[in-house]
Simulated scan of single mutants.
Amino acid sequence: MTNKYPYKNWMSATSSIDKLTLLELVWPGAHNSGVDYDFPYPIHVQPASHWFVCQDGPFIQQLNEGVRVLDLRFHSDEHWLGVKKFHTFHGYKLLRGRSLSELFKSLDFFLNENPDEFVVLDMHELKGLDEQHFDYKGFHEAIMSELGERLIPLKNQYLTLGALKKMSSLQRIVLAGEWHPDFTSPLYWPKIRSEWSGSDITSPEELRQHIERTLNNPPHKNTFWSLSATSYGELAGVKRITQELNKWFGPDSGWAPKCSIISADFIGATQLVSYCREINFFRGLRKT
């Protein structure tokens, strides 16, 4: 029987990367990870799903496929209380995706099964619903309650994966987001800089040019930054550019090693996880 998820535990199976810090890795990331084709969207929006859906399967599938950075956009709906008020979204009309509680359950299940994998939660955007303010306080309380013991403190950012494993058997999650008075903790990392094309409509060729420009002078190495390798068409909506991504970031291109996080749509259909693993494997071997 073939292994459906050959990269489910690629980090713990690649022992050489224990010599690397979190910031020295190249990470495979799922762009807009909370909106996928497995989610039961309302009937009236299903025909337009190609305009906003960015992944094939839910959080747990993305993690099992080897994705290690989840790009997350949450809104808070004041019609609900507690953790139920927080849902992912995509687009100006705040189309709802998966919930914060499902994210918690997926991470808990995955890390219980794979205790030495590391995950980055990129809180890309936090937004209130219907002109309301985002409930930072409630969001912080929910995260501390459900994920607090799993979060890697910012002060440990320069420790190697091996050292992090020795220090704690539970701390495997980086949570990064924009500072707010009600959303602050020594456990939180700074907001991750996103390098995107700057245009909602981006053809594959325009995307290629954007990536080339960015990687000619990439951001500083000692910080997380995310390269948005995504294409969106005026008629097609979210584009599936599997072949282009495999070509651009393949072993012969030289682009992937210059990256921190490669954030892609429908990443499970690409070879990006495999490419990132290979780069990190050799990077770890070279580090003395």
Rank of each mutant, 00 (worst) to 15 (best):
A236S: 10
S199R: 15
K155W: 05
G97K: 00
K84T: 11
I279S: 12
N114P: 10
Q55I: 00
A48V: 03
E24V: 01
K166S: 14
E117P: 03
E65H: 07
S33R: 03
L175P: 06
F52V: 06
P115E: 04
P251D: 09
E195F: 04
Q171G: 13
H220W: 09
G284W: 10
S185P: 13
T2C: 00
F74C: 09
P251T: 07
F118W: 15
W80H: 13
W255K: 01
V35E: 05
L170E: 05
T160A: 10
M1L: 03
F52L: 07
A30D: 08
N32C: 13
R208C: 08
K105Y: 01
W27L: 13
Y158M: 15
D130T: 03
P204E: 07
E195C: 10
E195T: 08
H210R: 02
S260F: 05
P219S: 03
T242I: 02
S15V: 11
T21F: 15
H133N: 09
V83L: 12
Q132V: 06
I279M: 14
Q132T: 12
P153M: 10
E206L: 04
F109G: 15
E195D: 07
I17K: 09
F183Y: 14
D108K: 12
H44E: 10
F134G: 03
F52E: 01
A229E: 02
K247C: 02
K105A: 15
A13R: 09
D71R: 02
K165A: 11
A30Y: 03
I241T: 05
L285M: 15
T14N: 08
R286N: 07
N216A: 15
K127E: 15
W27G: 06
A256N: 07
S274Q: 10
A176C: 14
S226A: 11
L63M: 11
M167T: 12
W196D: 02
L94D: 15
L272A: 03
G250S: 02
W248C: 01
N64E: 13
A229M: 05
S226N: 05
Y37M: 02
F224P: 04
Y41I: 00
Q271D: 07
R286Q: 03
K19Q: 15
L129P: 06
E244H: 05
F86W: 05
A13Q: 15
K247S: 09
F224W: 00
T202F: 10
E278F: 10
